[in-house]
Design a protein around this nucleic acid. Structure first.
Lengths: 359, 359
DNA sequence: CTTGCTAATTGAAGCGCTTCATCTGGATTT
DNA sequence: AAATCCAGATGAAGCGCTTCAATTAGCAAG
């Protein structure tokens, strides 16, 4: 026989605790939830009984009676992208300080899963939901809000203004990246890779374009790709290095670190020096960005802050009766490493991997 | 009329559905849970009412009444290690086929968080828990099981036989890795990095040792490190390349892909050829293993299968009255890429990133 | 020794669902 | 035509908790 439930059969309830402690049900509830409302004597008796019985509150009953639970749900797009890992961590840290637990669900870039997890959190009557939506799919948001569920969008909002959101200024990120290359003296820039239908990527490209326009005497070539993986970067690098010397770009920016990694490795494999011949900068500051042959410059979106801020907005929406929806747009931040600065350039310090928020 | 936040204010309940459909509460419940027990007429009326009201079942009430919920919790050690991402995906896929939702919690290698999430799932009376425990901390398992909660250990079990577990044969993994290097003709092997107090790492080292002993005419040097990051790999590579030529290892195996990446990049930076001069193999088949300067050979633990098998064991424990606890030990599998085979060697196909289970 | 308060405690009324013992009515059997 | 049966439908009894109105205890003030 397995070491199943205690002697009685079912788990001890508050009623059992009350009986053992010699107080009423209500007193046990108070003792557990607002100890200051209960005499020291009662409190102690209750705690002793809880201990003795190994009582664990039933959160289903609690949620039912109280009308809502205290956990917060986070529906993630892609647990495999470390930006989302950072978001989850930021949210978790912030939620924890206010006594909320954070449960994660990974949609794995799958629309149906995303919707289904939204519903699960909805059915669980969670205190609120953080949601990093896929590109163009916000109908779940409406459905869930119609049930009174509070929801904060993270990383993408499809232009909505009618709920809280925490975004990153993608255009500015692209601008900074290009600007950096231009300031290094690079003039033949290449925007390497990325499916153009993604909003974020289009923005980044626009930003890069703006920087190049401002500079005047530079060009920006654009080579899209279907996916964001490193072999796309390798392909693009292979293509451009085959050209006559004066048409090889001297600065490459990529909308993902993965692609940038492919670019860097392929360039090196073909005998080009990074950054002397070609400077390369990625995007996202993925956790592997320092584990490339040459540590990679990149544009960091501060996922940790995004998660934390999103929780703050959510809590305000929960607690503050005259809450107003706000859209927070965080500025991304340049992280300069060897792939643009060379071995001399010391990487910007990273403070334990958590990037400070700019502005 | 839109099905806005119901007229009353609160979300519509089954009672509301029953009223609108003109049937009883019980019938609604049946219609929703076991449609075959209900006449087609009633079923249709109920579904229509559900639709019209925008009814969403309250899972707290359901869990309370039914005695347990249908979601499964997974407490992860480190969401940043792609092995755990694979485990989560495997678990999610398997859970989904049997109608269970999977909720994740990330302990971030923090003992207290781990325990707290275990409690949260416990309090939620989840159908069961999958748990990838930190090295030496299994007390939470006892606590939770004492409450009747079912739990399956994944990736580490601390030698327990009294509950289900899915493990990976670490010793064999180390053995295979070393064996592979030996078969390539390498004789001066180095086991690079890793804190020796981790069970898994000790095992991998033992396996490597066994392979070297068997070979007879080879040596295995061991250089531990405090962490598993890539800069440790760089340090170790820097050290060994400074030696007289006949004391530089010609084969390096590392207990983590991160360290191996550092080793590879530092070797290359110092002018050594990989794999011609030094063959390098990592461990875990992390998702970035192909995004290194030279794609990396590694030992793959099949995280996807581990997660899926763990769910199977859990479901058996839930459904099968005379369930017996089992410990499943999966064999890891060699993935050979350029860092040991050179450019000629074609990487083993990876089937969309999900590795087939061996034996 | 009342009176008047506040602080603690109590008990009951749900929260929204599942389930089970009952009940109903039409089809099948004899 | 009476007896039997059974798929369907019903309604009430909880599940374990929170909360609130009502009650009691405790104690300073009159």
């Amino acid at each position: 026989m397995t070491s199943q439930t205690a002697d009685g059969g079912r788990a001890p309830s508050m009623q059992d605790v009350a009986r053992l402690a010699g107080v009423s049900l209500g007193t046990v509830s108070h003792a557990l939830n607002k100890p200051e409302k209960v005499s020291a004597r009662s409190l102690q008796k209750v705690l002793a009984a809880v201990e003795q019985l190994g009582f664990v509150p039933n959160s289903a009953a609690r949620s039912l009676a109280a009308g809502s639970s205290s956990t917060v749900g986070l529906v993630l797009t892609d647990i495999d992208n470390s930006l989302f890992v950072d978001i989850a961590r930021g949210a978790e840290d912030e939620a924890r300080t206010s006594g909320h637990a954070l449960l994660l669900a990974n949609s794995d870039i799958d629309f149906k899963r995303q919707e289904s997890y939204l519903d699960i959190f909805d059915e669980a009557r969670v205190a609120g939901i953080l949601f990093t939506p896929l590109n163009a799919s916000l109908e779940g948001v409406d459905r869930v809000r119609r049930h009174g569920r509070r929801i904060v969008l993270v990383n993408y909002a499809g232009g909505r203004q009618d709920c809280c959101a925490v975004l990153s200024d993608e255009e500015y990120g692209g601008y900074m990246a290009a600007r950096h290359l231009l300031e290094l003296g690079r003039r033949r820039l290449l925007f390497a890779g990325g499916p153009e239908e993604f909003h974020a990527i289009k923005e980044r490209r626009n930003g890069a374009l703006r920087a190049v326009m401002e500079a005047g005497n530079a060009t920006l070539e654009i080579i899209p790709s279907r996916r964001l993986k490193s072999d796309e970067g390798r392909k693009i690098a292979a293509e451009v290095t085959g050209r006559p010397a004066d048409r090889v770009p001297d600065g490459i920016l990529s909308p993902s670190d993965r692609i940038a990694a492919g670019v860097i490795h392929e360039l090196m494999a073909r005998g080009l020096r990074v950054p002397e011949d070609v400077a390369v900068i990625g995007y996202d500051n993925n956790h592997f960005a320092t584990e490339v042959a040459i540590s990679m410059s990149t544009v960091a979106q501060d996922g940790h802050s995004m998660g934390a801020e999103a929780i703050s907005l959510l809590l305000d929406e929960i607690r503050n009766p005259d809450h107003e929806h706000r859209v927070l747009t965080l500025k991304p931040r340049l992280i300069l490493r060897e792939s643009t600065l060379g071995p001399s350039g010391r990487p910007v310090p990273e403070e334990d991997g958590r990037l400070p928020l700019e502005a």
